[in-house]
Amino acid sequence: MSTSNAPRYDAIQIGQELPPMTFPPITRTTLALFAGASGDHNPIHIDLDFARAAGMPDVFAHGMLSMALLGRYLTHWAPQPCLRRFGVRFVAITPVGTQLRCSGKVVDRREEGGERLVALELVAADLQGEAKLIGEALVALP
């Protein structure tokens, strides 16, 4: 597994920010595709009638879809074989049409178990700045 295009551990500083990335709006088509691809068939994400009957104004994005976008952001910075841990809290509902802007920051660097590890804080927010997912990741860098 290649980690050759990963950032170098020696060049990483605590407090360093990752370049932010903004994703296209989440459409109803995306939700339908994601329901099929992820196996999450909960109708609250794809069936407007069901969502309204459950007291929601509209369908909303699967938390795991937003996490997958945050995962794309993360693996753009450090390729997937570098990943040791990736976790999020889903802090707000993500409505249809939301554009997620992902950002991240280095919060720790340490050598442990023969690996050079970098801990990151990650956020996926809407364009108004409301956080939808707050995450953390641990990556091993060359």
Partner: peptide
């Protein structure tokens, strides 16, 4: 009932790809 459920947190620990 499924409409009462929300996903609160999710994490993954990787030992390989």
């Amino acid at each position: 009932p499924i409409e009462r459920v929300l996903h609160g947190e999710q994490s993954f620990t990787y030992h390989g790809v």
